[in-house]
C-alpha cells in the first residue's frame, strides 16, 4: 500500500479513527492534509505523523456551502488531492419522542450533507485531476438499528446509499467511492460510558462483538486498503469492520 507523494485529506483528524488513519497514511508515504475544528488537537496529530510536508486545515465541515471553495484553496497550497478519508461525524442517542427537528438537522448536516459537499468539492476541476478515491466512515448502525439511535442510524445508512450512487456517477472521472462501517471501538466506548451507558450495558455490547472492541487502527487499515492501489477495482462498496457484530 505505497502512497508515496500522494496527497490525502483526512477529516476528523483530531482524534480516534481520523487521527490513526492520518498516522497510518503518513507511514505509507502520503502527504496528509489534516482537517478538523480544533487547531491545537490537529497540531497534536501532526506531531504523530511520519515524514514531512503534512499540513493542517482548521475548518468546520458543517459550513457546507463554503466547502467546495475551501477545497480549491487547499489545492493551491498542497497540490492536487488524491484521496479523502472522511472520518468526521457526530453521534446522537435520544428516543424519538424527545427529538427536536433542530437536533435531527444538525446530525444530518454533519454526517450526510458534509459528505455530499466534500464529494462535490473533490470532483471539481483543479482539485482532483488524475482520479482518486473517497472513503466515508459510517457505522454498523447504518446496517442495523438500535433503540434511541434512529437519527444516527439514518444518517449512517444515508452514507451507504450515497456511496453507491456516487460510485456510479464518479467512475467516469476515475474516482472510486467506498465506505467503511466500523463497529464499536474501545475509545468511543469509553467516551459513551462516561455519559450514557452503564457498565452492564457496555459488557452487553462487547458480548455482541465476538472479537471484542476494536481499535482505531483496525479501521484505519481498511481505509488505507480502499484508498490505495490495493482497492483499484473496488467502488460502491461498504466494508464492514466490526469484530463480527453484524454476523449475528
Amino acid at each position: 500500500m505505497d502512497m508515496t507523494g500522494k496527497v490525502m485529506m483526512v477529516t476528523g483528524a483530531s482524534s480516534g479513527i481520523g487521527r490513526d488513519t492520518a498516522v497510518l497514511l503518513s507511514q505509507l508515504g502520503a502527504r496528509v492534509v489534516l482537517v478538523g475544528r480544533n487547531k491545537d488537537r490537529l497540531s497534536q496529530t501532526l506531531g504523530m505523523l511520519q515524514g514531512t510536508r503534512h499540513t493542517i486545515e482548521a475548518f468546520d465541515l458543517a459550513n457546507t456551502d463554503a466547502l467546495p471553495e475551501w477545497m480549491k484553496s487547499i489545492v493551491q497550497k498542497s497540490g492536487s488531492i488524491y484521496g479523502i478519508a472522511h472520518c468526521a461525524g457526530t453521534q446522537l442517542m435520544l428516543p424519538v419522542r424527545m427529538l427536536k427537528s433542530q437536533q435531527v438537522e444538525e446530525v444530518l448536516r454533519t454526517n450526510v450533507v458534509s459528505a455530499i459537499m466534500l464529494a462535490k468539492g473533490f470532483r471539481q476541476r483543479g482539485v482532483n485531476d488524475a482520479g482518486g478515491a473517497i472513503v466515508f466512515v459510517s457505522s454498523v448502525m447504518g446496517e442495523v438499528g438500535a433503540p434511541g439511535r434512529s437519527v444516527y442510524c439514518a444518517s449512517k445508512s444515508a452514507l451507504h446509499a450515497l456511496t453507491k450512487s456516487l460510485a456510479l456517477e464518479l467512475a467516469k472521472d476515475n474516482i472510486r467511492v467506498n465506505c467503511v462501517a466500523p463497529g464499536t471501538l474501545r475509545t468511543e466506548m469509553l467516551e459513551e460510558a462516561q455519559s450514557l451507558l452503564t457498565a452492564t450495558q457496555i459488557a452487553e455490547i462487547e458480548r455482541m462483538q465476538p472479537l471484542g472492541f476494536g481499535a482505531p487502527r483496525d479501521v484505519a487499515h481498511a481505509l488505507a486498503f480502499l484508498l490505495a492501489e490495493t482497492g483499484r477495482w473496488i467502488t460502491g462498496s461498504v466494508l464492514i469492520v466490526d469484530g463480527g457484530y453484524t454476523a449475528h
Partner: peptide
C-alpha cells in the same frame, strides 16, 4: 426502562 432512562437524562 432503558429508554426512559435516556429520556430522564435528556430532560
Amino acid at each position: 426502562d432503558s429508554m426512559s432512562a435516556l429520556i430522564y437524562m435528556a430532560l
